[in-house]
Simulated assay, not measured.
Amino acid sequence: MAGEEPIVSGMASRYANALFELASEQNAIDSVAADLGRFNGLVEESADLKRLVRSPVFSSEEQTKAVTAVLERAGIGGIAANFIKLAAHNRRLFAVGDMIAAFTALVAKARGQASAEVTAAQPLSDDNLNVLKDSLKSATGKDVSLNVKVDPSLIGGLIVKIGSRMIDASLKTKLQSIKIAMKEVG
């Protein structure tokens, strides 16, 4: 529709849209979303896998071979595995996190949900995730799917991005604000 902002744009969007169409045709959106979420979790947990995914040093063949082994070991197959292997083969593995986030946003939109990117200083417990989902649901009036990343540099707290809104309640930002305020006073 005219005037409507796209959820995502660029290369990640093209890959995510193609994957979403394929998963829709095969009635596999839920399984693909679950597999991509598991792969994203593996990348977040493993420094070696994160390096493999992000580093331009590895060749397409090396990335494809390594990712294939990781996917097999994690029990991720089908459309999601083929998608990740294709990204590796096309030298786009560095953007797979953005592709997964874009796919998640498309799934959320199709379900009438909102999609939120949450960055936390440490992994969130299931109770914390449920409280956050409930809070965001009451604020937006929609069910909210969460894409959670961990960034220890935040020290504490959260950064939540939902649509065009961002709420930064991280300790890092609060400390920076105090530092700036103290410089102005002194």
Rank of each mutant, 00 (worst) to 15 (best):
M1K: 10
A2I: 06
P6T: 11
I7Q: 15
I7D: 14
G10V: 04
M11N: 14
A12G: 11
S13A: 04
R14I: 11
R14F: 12
Y15P: 09
Y15R: 05
N17P: 07
A18E: 03
A18L: 07
L19P: 04
F20A: 01
F20Y: 01
E21I: 12
L22N: 03
L22H: 04
E25M: 07
Q26H: 05
S31V: 12
V32Y: 02
A33T: 08
L36C: 03
L36V: 04
G37V: 03
R38T: 06
F39D: 00
E44R: 08
E45R: 15
D48P: 00
L49A: 01
L49Y: 05
R51A: 07
S55P: 09
S55N: 09
P56G: 07
V57K: 06
S59I: 03
E61N: 12
E61V: 15
Q63V: 10
Q63A: 13
T64N: 13
V67M: 02
T68A: 13
A69N: 10
V70F: 00
L71P: 01
E72M: 14
A74P: 01
G75Q: 15
G75W: 14
G75F: 05
G77Q: 04
G77I: 13
A81D: 01
N82Q: 10
F83Q: 05
I84S: 15
I84E: 06
A88Y: 11
N90V: 06
L93V: 06
L93G: 07
V96I: 15
M99Y: 02
M99F: 02
M99K: 00
I100H: 00
A101C: 14
A101D: 13
A105C: 04
A108L: 05
K109L: 09
R111C: 01
R111I: 01
A114C: 07
A114W: 09
E117V: 12
V118G: 01
A120G: 00
A121G: 07
Q122R: 15
L124Y: 08
D127E: 14
N128D: 10
N128C: 10
L129N: 13
N130I: 08
V131M: 10
K133P: 08
L136S: 06
K137V: 00
S138W: 15
A139C: 11
D143T: 06
D143E: 13
D143C: 08
V144N: 03
S145G: 00
L146F: 12
V148C: 00
D151I: 03
S153P: 14
S153M: 11
L154S: 03
L154T: 00
G156L: 05
G157T: 01
I162M: 14
R165W: 14
I167Q: 10
A169N: 14
A169F: 08
S170D: 03
K172N: 06
T173E: 08
K174Y: 07
L175R: 09
I178C: 00
I180E: 05
K183Q: 12
E184K: 10
V185S: 08
G186Y: 02
G186H: 09
